[in-house]
């Protein structure tokens, strides 16, 4: 099973939920893998302190032009939608950093002058943190092609029974790439106007992808029912409410997993997992829209 932990807004506690869930489930004997697909800002390693066994460069295919063979017809520049290849005075200029790796130029070249070579955009790392299998992608600074890297991290083969995917925040390309193919999505929110506004957008995205989902309310306060009201109006289940607690924020600030620093938080994540199982098997993505 693959669960993606996502959120419309950043900083709602996505990484906290993902790492704590991985930790408590690994302790129960389940073989868990934590995948950090927030490749622009991977933070899970700061809490899980994994030992990295393997670090592989991740590349996207970009064109390399053989000037001897090139006939200067300009078809490669014409097919490219990303301005990654230009043709002036029958000479071809390439801009690999703009290339999305669609392969159109190599395919369209009548002279067989274009060969695709790998251009590094970051690294994919695998390792282990105590009982948790660990994988993460880390995008090179100044690099824009995060979906390619996310795809490659997401697809690293595994022997784990459960994949917990820490998805990037937001609702655009990177978030969608990380969530795609998950069996269940947990949307982490906080009960504030910003949090709920962004939760609404994230919910729409997950609905569009047609993946079963539930909400985790972080920094919950008993007197604030705005998240409950929102979820009931939007017909989405709340799988957990994690209380607002300055001690959690302080543990987090030091890089400590809240479930280790504050063991009384462990039941929240065990209950969360029980609820996910109930929702994933009971109503697979079919709650009324």
């Amino acid at each position: 099973m693959k669960i993606a932990i996502a959120s419309g807004k950043g900083g709602t506690g996505k990484t906290t939920v993902a790492t704590c869930l991985a930790q408590v489930l690994a302790e129960t004997g389940l073989r868990v893998r934590y995948l950090d697909c927030d490749v622009e800002e991977p933070n899970g390693h700061l809490f899980l302190h994994p030992e990295i066994y393997e670090s592989k460069p991740v590349t996207v295919p970009v064109p390399e032009v053989d000037r001897e063979k090139c006939v200067g017809c300009g078809l490669c520049a014409k097919i490219c939608q990303y301005a990654a290849i230009a043709c002036v005075k029958k000479k071809v200029v390439t801009f690999p950093e703009l290339c999305h790796g669609c392969g159109g130029c190599a395919r369209v070249c009548p002279a067989g002058a274009i060969r695709e070579v790998g251009r590094g955009i970051g690294v994919a790392e695998t390792g282990r943190s105590c009982k948790i299998d660990f994988a993460q992608g880390c995008l090179r600074v100044g690099e824009a092609m995060s979906p390619s890297l996310i795809r490659q991290v997401r697809d690293i083969p595994t022997g784990a029974e459960l994949d917990i995917i820490d998805a990037p925040p937001g609702t655009s390309c990177p978030a969608i790439t990380a969530i795609r193919g998950a069996d269940f999505v947990l949307l982490v929110t906080e009960p504030t106007p910003f949090g709920l506004n962004d939760l609404a957008l994230a919910l729409d995205m997950v609905r569009e992808l047609d993946i079963p989902r539930a909400v985790v309310v972080n920094r919950h306060e008993d007197e604030n029912l705005s998240a409950r009201k929102f979820c009931s109006e939007r017909h989405v289940q709340i799988a957990a409410e994690i209380p607002d607690d300055r001690r959690v924020a302080e543990a987090y600030s030091q890089g400590l997993l809240p479930v280790i620093a504050l063991p009384e938080y462990r039941p929240y994540f065990l209950d969360l997992w029980a609820n996910v199982n109930k929702l994933a098997t009971g109503t697979p993505g079919k709650e009324p829209a």
């Binding site: 520049a77 301005a83 990654a84 230009a86 002036v88 005075k89 703009l98």
Partner: peptide
């Protein structure tokens, strides 16, 4: 109004 590569495409215009 190009998404990206405005400089490249403008350069092609100038050359052409």
């Amino acid at each position: 109004n190009a998404a990206q590569g405005a400089g490249i495409q403008s350069a092609e215009t100038v050359v052409n």
